[in-house]
């Protein structure tokens, strides 16, 4: 009895070691059967309308489970990732994708934020340029500002002075 058990443990251990070494990603991968990880790799890029805003790979509803099984089925049939995505878009609409496809009105989605950012940057840049022209004139005002600030924050200035002394 005891030796039998030992033997059993040894066997399990050996099996585990073999599994662990031969296939570090998943313990259950066979040659052409897609693993859970293969399925999830695609599922995580999709959203199911039943559980909105939760990626498909982690959505616990029954509908999403069926979807993941469908991905598995299609993978078994040898479909590529892109084919599967296209199929899902046909079946359930563009909202299954994590991002709207770059076409038509959706282009606005991608163009507007960078355009606004550039506009903001240009506005800032313009302010900086005009500031350069004033550089000469403002040298005086800097001194004034420094004086104003020191009255307000005398203590901080004391420290700054000390730092400057030390580092000069």
């Amino acid at each position: 009895m005891k030796t039998e058990k030992k033997w059993l443990y040894g066997f399990i251990l050996a099996a585990l070691v073999i599994i662990a070494f031969t296939n570090p990603g998943s313990a259950f991968a066979q040659d052409n059967t897609p693993t859970d990880n293969d399925v999830n790799a695609i599922a995580r890029q999709m959203f199911c309308p039943v559980c909105e805003n939760t990626p498909l790979d982690v959505c616990p509803t029954e509908a999403c489970k069926d979807w993941r099984e469908l991905i598995r089925l299609k993978l078994t049939e040898g479909w590529t990732e892109q084919q599967i995505k296209t199929y899902f878009v046909e079946q359930y609409g563009a909202r299954v994708l994590a991002e709207p496809p770059m076409q038509g009105l959706n282009l606005l989605m991608y163009i507007l934020p960078p355009a606004l950012m550039l506009a903001g940057a240009a506005f800032l840049g313009k302010a900086f340029l005009s500031m350069r022209q004033n550089a000469e004139r403002s040298k005086i005002s800097i001194e004034n500002d420094k004086a104003a600030e020191s009255a307000e924050d005398k203590y901080a200035n004391l420290i700054e002075d000390e730092i400057n002394k030390r580092e000069a």
């Binding site: 039943v50 509908a63 979807w67 469908l70 089925l73 878009v89 046909e90 079946q91 359930y92 609409g93």
Partner: peptide
């Protein structure tokens, strides 16, 4: 609505549904 074909077929078979049924493509 938002269903996978294999599961849908199982369901239709289970209840012997004979009236015409189809997937709502793109949830249109």
């Amino acid at each position: 609505y938002v269903d996978t074909e294999p599961e849908a077929r199982k369901y239709l078979e289970k209840f012997n549904i004979t009236f015409p049924n189809g997937p709502d493509l793109g949830t249109r």
